[in-house]
Nucleic acid binder design. Sequence first.
DNA 1: GCTTGACCTTGACGCTGCGTCAACCCTTCA
DNA 2: TGAAGGGTTGACGCAGCGTCAAGGTCAAGC
Lengths: 261, 261
Amino acid sequence: MLTIGQLAAYAGVTARAVRHYHQIGLLPEPERDASGYRRYGAKAVVALIKIRTLANAGVPLSQIGQMLEADASTFAEAVRRIDSHLRDEIERLETSREQIAQLAAGDSLALPPEVVFYLDRLREIGVSERMVEAERDGWILVAARWPERVREFMPGKLAQLDDPRLVRLYEVLSELVESDEGDDDPRLREAADLMAGMAEQAYTSGEINFGEMAYDDLSFDLLDALAVESDPRAQRMLDLMRERGWAGWTRLKRLAEPPDS
Amino acid sequence: MLTIGQLAAYAGVTARAVRHYHQIGLLPEPERDASGYRRYGAKAVVALIKIRTLANAGVPLSQIGQMLEADASTFAEAVRRIDSHLRDEIERLETSREQIAQLAAGDSLALPPEVVFYLDRLREIGVSERMVEAERDGWILVAARWPERVREFMPGKLAQLDDPRLVRLYEVLSELVESDEGDDDPRLREAADLMAGMAEQAYTSGEINFGEMAYDDLSFDLLDALAVESDPRAQRMLDLMRERGWAGWTRLKRLAEPPDS
DNA sequence: GCTTGACCTTGACGCTGCGTCAACCCTTCA
DNA sequence: TGAAGGGTTGACGCAGCGTCAAGGTCAAGC
């Protein structure tokens, strides 16, 4: 006859776990010896091993009792459910691993590699680290909102980096972020002019930034808001752009009638 | 500005979860508006998404805060730990799946396929279902004790089935299990004679059942006990074997001086 | 016979990551 | 004007045990 500790050791669990199974009625309480100790026979070992086998497979304890009592076909059905659940779980963990792997690589954190690549390009062309971080945070929002489509945006974005005006824009913005001149920094105007010029060209040539996308103002408002939260001078930029006939910041919209041009 | 519900929706979680993160200090409490509602900016969205990314990878909430604050190398180190943890977890689930698959197949439940095959062979030679179940339970114990070695036993066991005496023995035991004649069933003697004969031969020819295995009386006692618990007449069998000079049931041991021969 | 240490007993609280009331307040819209 | 659909705090519930606490027992050695 076994004590609870021996029983538990045999099945590779703790005595506490065995008591727990008694409490919830999963394993029947055995006889007690003269001093009140639980005494187990071999059948309890077998029962306990069966319980652990199912529990290890992720079956909730509350279902294991019914499963062990069920007839063959019910049991088989339950097994199918468990197996598909395990498959799902494994898949979930594997996607997690992929994310984590990217995360290890650089600033990723839930960003697809294309975006990471774009951020690295920014670094290469001399964009300051803080500016890159601001961009990254923006892309985190975009990736969260359109996880399927974010990769599609990137080739276009990369191509835009060939435009020296954009490079200059990033350069000016980098300087701005690093300095703290306040709202009357003249570079704000330079940046606004660059943006307006590029927007104008894109507009007349018929390309619009995030083109046909189901328009979802909230998300872009959020992006604009993010910029302002990161650096209050972004608000000033928004105003300057508005003077030049554009609303919004991350997604530019032609104003019906430029108020001040 | 976002309400808690909008923030939560953006990151794909519930408002309750966000409040939880506030409670444990993982996400800072935002400003409140005039009516006491929490109001969130875009940075909160980014922070929340980062939190979820790590949480989905299985990082405990209690560590996420430190990770997000840590410097790059500490972070990378943590990521490595997480990744290896994920690998382990995936592996665990995959072994579970294998077990579950066998479990679906037949009477398995934590039994390697070789043992299942052996049990099927028993059915083919006409061993009764209840007897097979008794065998199965025994093998569950064996597999729990020597998970690495149990497969090695099986070829030998299968080979033994070629001995017509063993087949006869199983036949007699099957009949015994199905009947309930009590301790004076003459078939008990026949079974004991068969076992003793085979044991004698194995002994003189130098083969001993579980040969050189680190002897572990407890486990075999447990197997004997299992038999007795399944059918009390097994105790009678043990006595009859003892009369014939053998101790034990699942592992036979020559007695020093046969007490009654 | 006494101590020591390793077991056993019940009972109770702790942990994670929220879900789910309850009881109430705010805002908005028909 | 009232009903719907947000928000607020506070509290308990859940699984599957871990981990005390406060004892009672058992086997061994002195």
